[in-house]
Design a binder for these strands. Structure first.
Lengths: 195, 195
DNA sequence: AAACTGAACATTTTGTTGATTGTTCATTAT
DNA sequence: ATAATGAACAATCAACAAAATGTTCAGTTT
């Protein structure tokens, strides 16, 4: 049983190296198998499909991402600052990830295309972090009270969607995106209505 | 001279019919020419390229769209209501346009891909309408004062981007989008900070 | 001279074929 | 019995040829 888990890890490592260097599509099951000196067929005893290896690979990266997000959420800055920092970090990380390593973008696209449930779950996780910051801010009187934290977090996600997948909009200039994010956050904080 | 303008219109009509029925890519210059009983070469005396015909076609539709937007902006509802109505209308129109006539989506994509400046100009026009509503709302005391109307309009556009091109996000359920738009507008109005 | 044509050209798209790839499973090794 | 193999199968991809398309222009018509 523990042996199995170890082999799964080794497969993930080998596949990950290939995904990084050559991209998802250009990586073949037989190459992964060859790297591990095993047969293609044997891979399927550990993962039901190539896409599942990709998903497991993404999941392994999640741990790191979650740690970063958790670091921001649990830091001792005021909620107002943490909320901004959260969105800044998401923007910078996704932008850089895609900009400097087009190979990983390919993998991300394959997963979102073929496994939409996965992306939705990821967004749901983010919402938990957002809700945590919101809760803190409401308790210390920074944010206005609210009877449905999760819905509020959802709407914040809607309003910042542009900064989560900027490349979808032919938006490739990080400096413009930074300015727009700051402005959008200002607006979200302040609100349109007169006080 | 007036003759020329008339021929340009006839070309637009013929091309438009084909774009509607068969889509941009499946429409050929020789078909448009044949419909008008003229040669392919002659088309180029009136439009420099096929893409320019598509752009002119889109521009013809703009008139109708502008009229609708202007109708909302100039209506006598309170600014608060007009702002919401504006975004609702944009969402419903783009969603339906794409949903019921996939052919026009193809055309829209070709234009945004090959003529990014065109889309930016279109967004700029929308911003003018948004700024108008904002100005009214600020003057009558509904919206908070603001020293840069255009920038504020730009940020509102950022925050509502998701509802302008929902299909980019694998978002095909209009009922969910409606709910999210209402929630996002609520958030934009109210703001996060405690009053 | 101005309006128009349609053949010519370069570029894209389409169709087709053979090779490659993901996946399965009967068989072998341990 | 369990673990692993690699040949076999169907689906996908890649590469090339053929066809179609956008665009131009020398030449014709008006």
């Amino acid at each position: 049983m523990d042996d199995k888990a170890e082999t799964r890890d080794r497969i993930l490592e080998a596949a990950g190296r290939r995904f990084d260097h050559y991209g998802y599509n250009k990586t073949t099951m037989s190459e992964i198998a060859a790297d591990l000196k095993m047969s293609t067929g044997n891979l399927y005893r550990f993962y039901p499909s190539k896409l599942d290896i990709a998903e497991a690979f993404a999941r392994a990266h999640e741990v790191e991402e979650d740690a970063i997000m958790e670091g921001i959420v649990d830091s001792d800055s005021p909620a107002e600052v943490r909320m901004r920092e959260f969105h800044r970090t998401v923007l910078e990380r996704t932008f850089n990830m895609i900009d400097q390593n087009k190979k990983l973008f390919e993998l991300a696209q394959a997963i979102t295309q073929e496994r939409p449930a996965y992306s939705n779950r990821r967004l749901a996780v983010e919402r938990v972090y957002l809700a945590k910051i919101l809760k803190d801010g409401i308790e210390d009187g920074t944010f206005a009270p609210c009877d449905n934290l999760d819905e509020l977090a959802e709407m914040i996600q809607c309003a910042t969607m542009k900064f989560r997948f900027p490349q979808l909009y032919n938006c490739f200039r990080i400096d413009m995106l930074r300015r727009e994010l700051e402005g959008t956050m200002d607006l979200l904080y302040r609100g349109l209505l007169k006080r």
